[in-house]
């Protein structure tokens, strides 16, 4: 489903180069529930951004559902992102001006689906997360758990093959976090690949497989550390030599 080979991401400014990912190679297969863990600043979010086509990689190859994304332009990347990937963010990222129905509708509109199809999908997704009766509510009128469930409805309404979740329980209390995790597990059970970025060991423990990222390098903990692990801590910074 998701295959990265020797993927590097370097942020350059006039005075500094930051290596956020260093020749990272990993694979996530169909039907998997994977947790990506690692300390703050290790490159987890950069990995998520690249996996979700939110950022371009500096070098290496990335294949998503058989498509090599390295050479795609903005339009093709946006379309692929819209069709294949659902996002669940730590801070929910619902649009405050729109009610739940309109929020879930956002990615569907960009796909150009018919009104009837969109309405069917929105209703089904909101029902699926238990918010069928709250369609006309605005995000500010809901609890954190409900907002995250609405965000999951938005992520799944388009029927993505890959669900990328960035600390999805980070802003929730434990009861709500369990609720959200249960929902993600159900979606995985129905065939959606779930990749969850977290630094919470309890959450990570519920995944089928953990990938630990340290200093921009990944190690597959299920299979043992196949890659050389760099010293723990932030991604390293050094002055450019060129």
């Amino acid at each position: 489903m998701l295959r990265m080979k020797d993927v590097s991401k370097v942020y350059r400014t006039e005075v500094i180069e930051t290596h956020a990912l260093r020749e990272l190679s990993l694979e996530v297969r169909e039907g998997e529930f994977v947790a990506v863990t690692g300390p703050s600043g290790s490159g987890k979010t950069t990995f998520l951004n690249i996996a979700g086509l939110l950022e371009e990689l500096t070098s290496g190859t990335y294949t998503l559902d058989g498509v090599d994304v390295s050479s795609l332009d903005d339009r093709a990347r946006s379309r692929l992102r819209n069709e294949k990937i659902g996002f669940v963010f730590q801070s929910f990222n619902l649009i405050p001006d729109l009610d739940l129905f309109a929020n879930v509708d956002v990615p569907l509109r960009y796909r150009g689906l018919s009104r009837t199809d969109r309405h069917r999908r929105i209703a089904s997704a909101l029902e699926r997360v238990g918010l069928g009766s709250r369609m006309k509510h605005f995000p500010a009128e809901l609890s954190g758990g409900q907002q995250q469930r609405a965000a999951i409805a938005r992520a799944i309404a388009g029927g993505p093959k890959l669900l990328l979740a960035d600390e999805p329980t980070g802003n929730l209390d434990s009861a709500m976090a369990r609720e959200v995790m249960q929902l993600l597990e159900e979606l995985n059970a129905q065939g959606t690949v779930v990749v969850i970025v977290t630094h919470d060991p309890e959450i990570a423990a519920r995944a089928q497989r953990n990938i630990h990222v340290v200093a921009g390098i990944a190690a597959d903990l299920e299979r043992g550390p196949a890659l050389v692990r760099a010293p723990a801590g932030a991604a390293d910074h050094h002055q450019p030599t060129a």
Partner: peptide, 16 residues
Amino acid sequence: RRQIGIRRALGATRGD
């Protein structure tokens, strides 16, 4: 800014 980023993440092109 954030809302625009969210829309982009959800599939909006620059043209959108």
